[in-house]
Design a protein around this nucleic acid. Sequence first.
DNA 1: AGAAAATATTAGGCAAGACTAAATCTTGCC
DNA 2: GGCAAGATTTAGTCTTGCCTAATATTTTCT
Lengths: 255, 255
Amino acid sequence: MMEKSGPPLTAPVEDYLKTIFEIEVADAAGSGRREHPPAAGTNEIAQALGIAPASVTGMLRRLAEQGLISYERYRGVRLSDAGRRAALRTIRRHRVIEAYLTSALGYPWDRVHQEAERLEHAASDELIDRMAAAIGEPTTDPHGAPIPTRDGTLDARPLLALVDVDVGHVVRIRMVGDRDPERLRYLAELGVTPGADVRVVARAPFGGPITLRIVREGSEGSRVTGRSGRSDRESAIGPSLAAQVFVESRRKREA
Amino acid sequence: MMEKSGPPLTAPVEDYLKTIFEIEVADAAGSGRREHPPAAGTNEIAQALGIAPASVTGMLRRLAEQGLISYERYRGVRLSDAGRRAALRTIRRHRVIEAYLTSALGYPWDRVHQEAERLEHAASDELIDRMAAAIGEPTTDPHGAPIPTRDGTLDARPLLALVDVDVGHVVRIRMVGDRDPERLRYLAELGVTPGADVRVVARAPFGGPITLRIVREGSEGSRVTGRSGRSDRESAIGPSLAAQVFVESRRKREA
DNA sequence: AGAAAATATTAGGCAAGACTAAATCTTGCC
DNA sequence: GGCAAGATTTAGTCTTGCCTAATATTTTCT
């Protein structure tokens, strides 16, 4: 066993694999299981990477040649085992870097994503392991996303989008989307950070805002925001924002 | 003033500028001043970068178009002010990263160069500044090379190659070449690390070995090697190795 | 000075990645 | 069952960097 790791992957290739992986995960989570095996479409990939769909096709052929994906024209792609392993390696790098930057260097959580996006392609595995060790082998990044282990295991506990939580429930924030700095700053200001417990106080119909109350601060909260003590205010957030906040049910209903 | 920084430079471009800068410095140091302005040759650059000379020509044209160098066919190149600034920025990144990796993450000094070589193109200036601050704003990297300041000032104190030191002199090791890991491990084992004082005990003629005795351990020594207490042994090193070790004269002659 | 040696440059290619415009599949809808 | 909409792929270019082989220029040596 122990397949050769082959030639090192280029940064664009790593980005494609990471993106395809994330699409597969989102598809699988989005609906129990949609089709038997979820496949990523050319357009989806193009949009996620911010490039033209036509550019994606060429790269998919190359990825297929390298055995990183299985690809049938017009049918979408699926990661091979090698491709999935490579994707997880890159995601691990990304998330360890994010965690390290906040823990060890005081980076604010809204800026680590951008920095990690570049460093993930340049850091050696040894560096990543040293970083992880230096901050106590974290299991999630600052936004709550789980960090794959060295051997490629990812804790894929199913989470619920805050937008889908019923009124009255108290839930614990587990993860928030990490891509938009402004959104992250806003959430931190509200106290919606991983580890916090919130109660859904109200939900306006027809895609209206969701009103919530922070029941307990997230452990990251004060470090992330520099502020604290605003725990018992209510805030209302729109559904598109609430769709990017993932929670774990606490199975506790209240009036 | 305050010229636009323009589009970000690619990794190869940064490597060219860094290399040209280092050649200019070496030329200037190598002989008081050789010509009025030292110029880097195509071959030199190609060899330093490990690519074919013909490949260099094309890049030089592009660098000249971007105003980073001045270039006359068949005459060699010279960095423009913009080019020199960019080179110093890259060198600062490289050296801060090296210092950080050893200070904060326990990297051995023979492996930081390789890692920094990739990270220097991916790290933001903010990250570099945070790293520098985290380890107390070091002024040199682990090999003793001075770190350019944020505003592009480089301490260019003239150093002497150990190979040129006369017998009997005691000199302080200031800097060692950082490119070859094996060489670095060997030097560390000998105790030839920045900060150490050595006496040149003997020098065999016709390019023969140089015998030296460690008079005082370098401050980095024990951290770098993990060993210590071998300070009063004599060692003999060849001239090519001694050419990569730079010292500061202590102006003290002994029998 | 004039030829040999060293140094540089052109010429012609290749691969990775990306783009636009123009086909071509698939699918959903009536 | 057929057709339009949407998704995908092909065709044809471009840029960056690199390579080898052939040519040109400088330098050096006798």
